[in-house]
Design a protein around this nucleic acid. Structure first.
Lengths: 253, 253
DNA sequence: CAGTGGTCTAGACCACGTA
DNA sequence: ACGTGGTCTAGACCACTGG
């Protein structure tokens, strides 16, 4: 008897390390503060650097830490609430200053997108790039696919591309009666171009929000927006400004 | 001249490996098929096992692969669409057979939850555990917090705990007039208990959906549901059964 | 029991940001 | 030039699953 289970389920080192670090973050560090570098931390805890990194990766995934090459590891602020599809139901660009149109060019969308739009393979559609800022930093990069059929009155000649073109496409789109929109969220990893725009490394975890805009029972436009998973909490159905304190022991919120 | 940039931006090996594997999955493998083991794969590509694993981890994060210790690595089916908050606005357990109540016990919620509920610290609330199945596998584990004030007519005596108690709490909750509900989605990692219920390892990536149920301008209940991020695509505002084909080259959808 | 993925080590070198 | 995190290696052992 006694001995109380004697480590019959040995916790992995990196997991225990993560717990210890997490508690230390709550107790001894404040937002923005710089942690000791990885080599020192690993030595202090008596583990290999790779093991220490495994713990840091988890904490970064949960939005507790921010790591930047050449700079260091800092304590991240709580995730910001970002409203998605909150304007009830509205076209993109409608009374919307959170998204900034960058440019627009005709291009054949990926097969999955073409399938949902109901356009033919290799058929070019208007592809609008937009960027979303919040609290002074980029939080999302979007590709908005608009079939030519959805903006029939768009004059192709005056402005062939650029931000002005993007605004023109959005303006034309808003003339259609919006039936409803459907949102889907899934986990992905940042493509090289998105990563650059989001100020992250390629492969960084992102929340991919796919929005279908329906008009007259057809998909009039499709938006694929990639949000930084480390800094964002996506909110649906409200204004998205609820403050949430941190809950030690894992997960988030 | 010539030499066309000569690798001035050398892609990391694991990233290139991921691309190669991803294309191989599309071209030469079908869903459910078993891949060669990690040691063989690493040898075949001439890299260390750790590097190969880095590529596999990314592909698993994107829902392309499924790895199980002691078994092997298999090709994952496309993510399933899971409807979240789609019944317009309804209480949990209302005409809802996707969630299965497991049990219910009084417990003091985490500080973050207590804050949103407006209950005092250490004040116990009804804590309902539910499990969600889809296509025969568990996709989400939920903790639903219901303050005593929201279910005033609940008799504390007859059924102190268990699934029957959980159903009783849900039934009482539905007598309140539901004002609206607010959803938030963020990335997290599975706690040990959630991981077990979701048939994953602790720390596995999950999508944490927090739902506030509002009645009479108060938070009448709060749900924290953790969905498997590898197998689920969360849908808002529709029935969530859209089929989506796979898009090679990264991300998801 | 053999074979799988999961954890861990102790090194090395590289890419990047800052000074 | 220096210090940071990012990548990579070649091993070792452990935990789990299945026959």
């Amino acid at each position: 008897m006694g001995t109380t289970q004697l480590e019959s389920v040995p916790e992995p080192k990196y997991w225990h390390l993560k717990t210890v670090l997490s508690e230390a973050l709550d107790a001894e560090f404040s937002v923005g503060e710089i942690l000791p570098n990885e080599r020192d931390l690993a030595a202090r805890f008596g583990v290999a650097r790779a093991t220490l990194r495994q713990a840091l990766e988890q904490l970064e995934l949960e939005g507790r830490l921010q790591r930047r090459r050449g700079v260091g590891t800092t304590v991240a602020p709580p995730r910001m609430g970002v409203a998605v599809g909150a304007h009830g139901q509205a076209w993109p660009g409608e009374a919307d200053d959170t998204w900034q149109p960058l440019d627009c060019m005709p291009a054949a969308p990926p097969a999955a997108v073409a399938g949902q739009l109901g356009t033919g393979r290799e058929e070019p559609v208007h592809t609008v790039r937009r960027s979303r800022m919040s609290h002074g930093q980029p939080v999302a990069a979007e590709l908005l696919y608009v079939p030519a059929a959805s903006v029939p009155d768009l004059s192709a000649i005056d402005v062939p591309s650029g931000a002005a073109r993007a605004r023109a496409v959005l303006r034309e789109l808003q003339r259609l009666p919006l039936q409803r929109q459907e949102n889907a969220v899934e986990l992905g990893s940042a493509r090289a171009d998105d990563a650059k725009e989001l100020d992250r490394l390629p492969g960084a975890p992102v929340l991919v929000v796919t929005t279908r805009y329906l008009a007259a029972d057809r998909t009039a436009a499709l938006s694929v927006a990639t949000y930084r998973a480390d800094t964002c909490r996506l909110t649906f159905g409200d204004s998205g400004d609820v403050e949430i304190h941190h809950d030690p022991e894992n997960q988030a919120s």
